[in-house]
Amino acid sequence: MFIYIIKRLLWVIPTILAVLFLLFSLTYLLPGDPADIILGPRATDEMAENLRERLGLNRPWYQGYFSYIRDVMRGDLGVSVFRSRPVFNVVMEVLPYTLALTFAGMGLAVINGILIGLLAANYQNTWFDKFLTLISFITASTPTYIASVLIIVIFSVNLNLLPSIGLGEGGLLNSLYYLIGPAVALSIGWTGYIGRLTRSSMLETLESDFIQTEKSFGLPRNYIIYKYALKKAIKPIIAVIGLGVGRLLGGAVFVEVIFTRPGLGRLIVDSIFERDLPLVRGGVLVAALLFVFANLLADISYAYFDPRIKQE
């Protein structure tokens, strides 16, 4: 276990270096000369040449790559072209909103998913089970942006219950109120997934030998379910939470754009449209780091809760 974790941790280093390499090479891959894009059409050749010198575009690429890595390690992500502010500050400003949204979405998905799965397993093979299974199937195959759009149409436009735009002014309660729609939209897909996972894991556990033994002792059914079975059946669900957080970070892009909330995803989309190269790089870097970290947690928790994986 310990060796596995060390190996997995070491694996993070080449991954991050590769991510940095792709982001670094964006300068050369994006259409158009970066200096021209930054300075606009009225710049003289001399100005462009000065800027190229300053950005390090005249150096050989590996020198540029190493100085890029050095800058990133120092927390210097460059200056946003359109906002004229350090990229680091711009990204850190919106990051909390994305994290709050992601964790709220994941929390809802876990709670609702486990509830649906337990109910379905408890009423196995009745019409109620079939109904819940169908619900989880439909929600699991609903894209985040469809869920967002339908929530706005139903709850904001028709029923006028939830706000459809922005963060909400002042006060924690109001912010939470504005978070309901986006968080539910983000959670929909994983609710269905976790529901199906819980149902099958619970059914598998209830059939396993140790539960059969408990039954033969004559312990009450509910006692067995909540005292023994749940403890074991919940492990695969905990193991996928890390994976889910990584996935939801991607889904948050749609939610942020559709509900017009500030956040990392929307920042990246906006900066791509504005051709703001430093901001694209910085935003994608932070998103990728979060994703790498979430995957790391996912793998370690998987190995912890499902020891078979270690052999691989």
């Binding site: 991954t15 991510v19 994006l30 259409p31 991607g250 995803g265 791509i272 994703f291 995957n295």
Partner: peptide, 16 residues
């Protein structure tokens, strides 16, 4: 390829 959040990798490649 899997190190990037899928949507964000797609967005960056599309921008290119």
């Amino acid at each position: 390829i899997r190190a990037f959040p899928p949507l964000i990798l797609i967005l960056v490649l599309l921008a290119i």
